[in-house]
Design a protein around this nucleic acid. Structure first.
Lengths: 287, 287
DNA sequence: GTAATAGTGTCTTTCAGACAGTATGAC
DNA sequence: GTCATACTGTCTGAAAGACACTATTAC
């Protein structure tokens, strides 16, 4: 056994982006590549679907790394994968992304006390170093710079470098920003979120996280959950409808309040022959 | 030895994007991960720099895959990397990308006989299958659809599926579109080109392929070589200059013909704290 | 002067972003 | 009717895209 597969299994449940975890949320599911597996991707699908019973809608490779060599000279290769699924209700083992990376949720935590402390600590680490200051400003959207939701990994790595996460050997202690995980699992989670956030802007991946039939408002809330940002409603609608990637179904949503919404279906046959929303989210200015 | 590193070493020489090859251009350099290597990336740097003497400016992981298991149950994990360098003159071992993927060079080969035959064969394969037709149109920019320079891998895979490359087990024979390579090397090359084309649009990677001092025209020609497309000169200038990522140097270029050009230097200190050209190339309409 | 390349100014079209208003349900 | 949510139409300002023009060299 020389290759280990790590899976970041993601779902969105109740407008919260969730990740499937083990050991009270301290690690990610992983398993060895078997000789019966025809490929790495098939290996991931196999044991995740077997173990959890979930159907994985989209599986994609993230990153490969090696452990330091064992005494006998062999070393384990670890290959991380992102997988999207629709079920995410088994709430014991599913945790919100933002439990681990709370600063990534700009929808609710902008200028929260946590973020204020975080920015303060970062700038303290930067000190008079102009380059560090620039990196902090760019990656965390400080000093008037725009927040870039795709820089998830860079932000985690900056936190690591600054010793603000327990995973770092030079952890300064004090406040804990989000739950930590064993070894580099939180880093892998960050990689996965970054990839997903980047990709939903040009590939129709959101639909893997939604039920077959959905309203535009549900679609928007799912995108917002993933991006961690509020999206401009009317412009989002315009964008989606101009793409012709969704089509109306006959029904209407059961509205508890207000006017019932039109239901839509993803035109799945167009995967592989269409782009999606032209690479940008229609954000609202407030963020 | 259970992990093998494969390197796609790229450079741009004389406005031609080059890749470093072995065995008369039929394979890519590769080598085993040693126990002395602290990480995969260090491993790649180590043996490429040792073997070739080139300094690698930027190294980035591409994709990992496994061979079918050996009789003893072990299987080799192969991890591919893209590496950028500035030297690319040892012309024996360096080949143009477009020798292998000639249809990717839209600057010179749009509506060439080769492309015409290629499109014809693709549509022949698609037949009456509407989905296949759509995929061909989308990926190869047929029927009025725009050419997307980032779909390098998708195009190669479509060629493979259609049996138009000798690497495919169901190769239909006849015309060879570009040089083929052993095993899946051409696929890895395609992955690398796709990654680079995508990334130069938002990260300042081009400068790793240019000398320290360059003119805007040289910068543009390097970008064009990579993207395989002609770029609108004035709009490209505007884009670059508005980014503040390059600064004038005192000198002027030695002009053989025409007015000498201003020389520029990349503000390397801004890597990691800047985007680059806002995610789009200013193309010229003719393409 | 011409040829050739470098560089500037500006017009037009497109689209992101924002706003105001109408429609349809529950009560 | 009010409240709440769904949906439509349109204005504006900032870029993308395109075009016309000036500048500086070699000959």
């Amino acid at each position: 056994m020389n290759a280990e597969l790590i899976a970041v299994v993601l779902a969105v449940h109740d407008d919260t982006p969730m990740v499937r975890t083990l050991e009270e949320g301290r690690s990610l599911p992983s398993g060895p590549l078997r000789t019966t597996h025809a490929s790495l991707q098939k290996g991931v699908r196999d044991w995740v679907e077997q173990k959890t019973g979930f159907h994985l809608g989209h599986v994609e490779q993230l990153y490969t790394f090696v452990d330091p060599p064992c005494t006998d000279g062999t070393r384990v290769t670890r290959i991380s994968y992102m997988a999207l699924t629709r079920v995410g209700a088994d709430t014991e083992r599913w945790k919100s992304w933002y439990d681990y990376l709370p600063w990534e949720d700009r929808k609710t935590t902008v200028s929260s006390p946590m973020v204020n402390v975080l920015e303060e600590k970062l700038l303290g680490w930067a000190g008079r170093d102009h380059l560090r200051q620039q990196r902090c400003a760019f990656n965390f959207g400080l000093g008037g710079m725009a927040w870039d939701d795709e820089l998830v990994l860079q932000r985690y790595e900056l936190m690591w470098e600054a010793g603000l996460v327990p995973e770092a050997p030079h952890f300064v202690g004090g406040v804990n920003f989000g739950r930590s995980m064993t070894s580099n699992s939180r880093r892998i989670l960050a990689t996965s979120i970054a990839r997903l956030r980047a990709k939903i802007k040009y590939r129709p991946l959101v639909f893997e996280l939604l039920p077959e039939i959905f309203t535009l408002w549900e679609l928007q809330r799912t995108v917002e959950a993933i991006a961690g940002r509020a999206v401009h409603k009317q412009n989002f609608r315009r964008l989606i409808l101009h793409q012709n990637l969704v089509e109306k179904t006959t029904g209407l949503s059961a509205a508890s309040k207000g006017r019932p919404a039109q239901l839509f279906r993803f035109r799945r046959e167009l995967v592989g022959s269409r782009r999606f929303m032209g690479s940008k989210l229609p954000l609202v200015k407030s963020s």
